[in-house]
């Protein structure tokens, strides 16, 4: 017995048993294959949001709102009641819904073009009113859905299909740090910037989302979670390279971490 190697007696079939299960897809995601490109961070952002609802036991009381952009088909994958909104208007739609269902959980799931360009007004005012909702903001610095055009968050010098020679801040404006802007508003309770490209970052981002929904449960006001993410198709890189590029180029300009907590700006 002493000489028997563990590896010799444990077969794969012995491991793959229900009692040994440690990770499987949440039931809050449908079985439909996601429409996102291979390696896109949207899929992880979807999953951890749905996992949080499941773990908090609030899936039956949550309504999600996804407007236009790559997030538009969220209702195909999130197995909860969902509303699809017009481009940029999700914070207004969420406001309208949450005000008449104050005891339900309401969140929006928006991209950078949606939240920080066409929907800036709705974003700022929902944050300023301190609507008791969660905003999940996926920032990949590009318009992914329409084929890689310049976004409000596109980095200076970054090439896109509408800034083919790189974003010229003299004529095209500087990238907009909308998250820092909403952190200044009195209605935002919790503002954080996360990413979902490594296991550690995914776990941190999920904790942040959990905290945001706990804030909503405690009726604290608006929680705003930016997820800096990749768009390997738009950036024209492999998924692994795009995550590396993101670390090297996006994170210096969009540093990760909490910006505001319990209504207090955090000094860093």
């Amino acid at each position: 017995m002493e000489d028997v190697k563990i590896e010799d007696v444990i077969k794969i079939e012995d491991i793959i048993k229900q009692e040994n299960l440690v990770f499987s897809k949440t039931k809050n995601l449908t079985d439909k294959t996601m429409s996102f490109c291979p390696g896109c961070g949207h899929g992880v952002a979807h999953r951890i949001t749905m996992e949080v609802l499941e773990e908090m036991g609030i899936s039956e009381d949550t309504i999600g709102i996804a407007p236009v952009g790559c997030s538009v088909l969220a209702y195909e994958f999130m197995n909860i009641d969902m509303q699809q909104a017009a481009h940029g208007r999700a914070p207004a739609v969420a406001t309208g819904l949450k005000r008449v269902y104050p005891d339900k959980y309401v969140f929006t799931y928006q991209g950078d073009g949606d939240l920080a360009a066409i929907g800036t007004g709705e974003t700022i005012h929902a944050c300023n009113r301190g609507e008791n909702i969660v905003i999940i903001f996926v920032n990949n610095g590009i318009y992914g859905m329409t084929g890689g055009q310049m976004a409000p968050t596109t980095l200076a010098g970054m090439k896109t299909s509408t800034s083919p020679y790189g974003r010229d801040v003299e004529t095209m404006g500087a990238p907009l740090k909308i998250t820092e802007v909403v952190a200044l508003l009195p209605g935002t309770c919790y503002v954080t910037r996360q990413s979902v490209h490594t296991p550690g970052n995914v776990r941190k981002a999920k904790k942040a989302i959990r905290k945001a929904f706990e804030n909503q449960k405690a009726k604290k006001g608006l929680s705003f979670i930016e997820i800096v993410s990749n768009c390997n198709s738009g950036w024209k890189m492999t998924p692994v390279d795009s995550n590396k590029w993101m670390e090297e180029n996006m994170f210096p300009f969009y540093p990760l971490g909490d910006i505001k907590d319990e209504f207090k700006l955090l000094q860093k």
């Binding site: 012995d14 990770f23 949440t26 296991p199 995914v202």
Partner: peptide, 25 residues
């Protein structure tokens, strides 16, 4: 069975199992 792969998988296609084995098995 550390679940790192499943944690970063954007398409939730990975299921993970873990078994704590001892040499007396």
């Amino acid at each position: 069975g550390c679940t790192n792969c499943a944690t970063v998988c954007p398409d939730s296609v990975i299921t993970v199992y873990r078994l704590k084995a001892t040499k007396n098995n």
